[in-house]
Write a protein that binds this DNA or RNA. Structure first.
Length: 295
DNA sequence: TGTATTTGACCTCA
DNA sequence: TGAGGTCAAATACA
């Protein structure tokens, strides 16, 4: 049996066990919070299982598709592979346009090119860090308006900022995150909602991981993490796709809305954090500590 | 006048 | 050979 199949079965067994617990709770009048916790755990388990299954299915679809394409190479769209040096750290997400029309991620960018992309309606813009020459900062980003939703921009970050010039908002920010499992051809998305200190949502971003990126840039998942600090506080222990997340859930973290309680623990970001590090600080939301995805 | 953006040309790679 | 990425001169803007 394949590793991922075992994981899916584990997930479903956990779900069954929690459902039983819930049933017992309902028989013996237990606290509403406790029941909510169980319900949310069960829902999340099934979401994980569905995601795992759909991902495997998608991998097979892709594999078959490539095999078919290989027979008719004339119809294959030759896509340039990203060179090794650029695959070290790639962050892909979908950003919403700011009121002033820019996509402010806290860093200063200089546009250095724009290209029409074959098969895409919208051109891709190329930006590099303003401090490339003054501080030898090699960070680069590519921005392309989404074909499907013109209000969204697909932003790809390549390389890390080594400059110290940051213009991000100076407020403490909290985030809530939820996983939405969507049709494979629309990508698999992690929705990130930025919250003010009073926990009112202020901005919403969506991390979209495409099938292609899953295949080609396995490090993407690893690039989203929360620091150990948050994990130590028990905030992000409920990592998605980890088989033992149920044990990690403490009752103290439960009690809010079903979809948010699992993942919406307030992860405070220090004032000095930039939006760039904000995205990189999401690194451990999805912690594929097990290699089932890439086997 | 200095800085940022635009855009055609050129380079790289599959 | 063609798509994607980068360069750099021309241009725009504050």
């Amino acid at each position: 049996m394949m590793m991922e199949e075992k994981l899916v079965i584990n997930e479903l067994e956990l779900g069954k066990e929690l459902a039983n617990r819930l049933m017992n709770n309902l028989k013996h009048t237990s606290s509403v919070d406790s029941n909510k916790t169980l319900i949310s755990d069960i829902l999340r388990i099934y979401q994980n299982a569905i995601f795992m299954l759909s991902f495997n299915q998608d991998k097979n679809i892709l594999k078959r598709s490539l095999e078919i394409d290989g027979k008719d190479s004339k119809n294959v769209f030759k896509k340039r592979k990203v060179s090794e040096k650029n695959t070290e750290k790639v962050k892909v997400f979908v950003a919403t346009e700011q009121e002033n029309g820019s996509i402010d991620d806290g860093h200063c960018w200089r546009k250095y090119g724009q290209k029409e992309i074959h098969g895409s309606k919208n051109p891709r813009a190329y930006y590099r860090c303003t401090h490339r020459f003054t501080q030898d900062c090699l960070a680069v980003k590519q921005v392309q308006k989404s074909d499907t939703d013109p209000s969204l921009f697909e932003v790809k970050y390549l390389g890390n900022h080594t400059c110290n010039n940051i213009t991000s908002p100076k407020t403490t920010t909290n985030f809530s995150v939820s996983l939405t499992n969507t049709n494979i051809f629309e990508g698999n998305r992690v929705h990130v909602t930025e919250q003010s200190e009073d926990m009112k949502p202020t901005k919403s971003e969506e991390v979209m991981i495409s099938l292609e990126d899953l295949e080609n840039k396995k490090n993407i998942f690893r690039t989203f993490s929360f620091s150990n600090h948050e994990i130590e506080n028990g905030v992000w222990k409920s990592n998605l796709f980890l088989g033992n997340f149920v044990e990690d859930l403490s009752p103290a973290t439960s009690g809010s809305a079903i979809t948010s309680e699992v993942l919406s623990a307030p992860a405070a970001v220090e004032n000095s954090e930039t939006a760039d590090s904000y995205f990189s600080s999401l690194d451990n939301i999805i912690d594929f500590g097990q290699d089932w995805l890439w086997s």
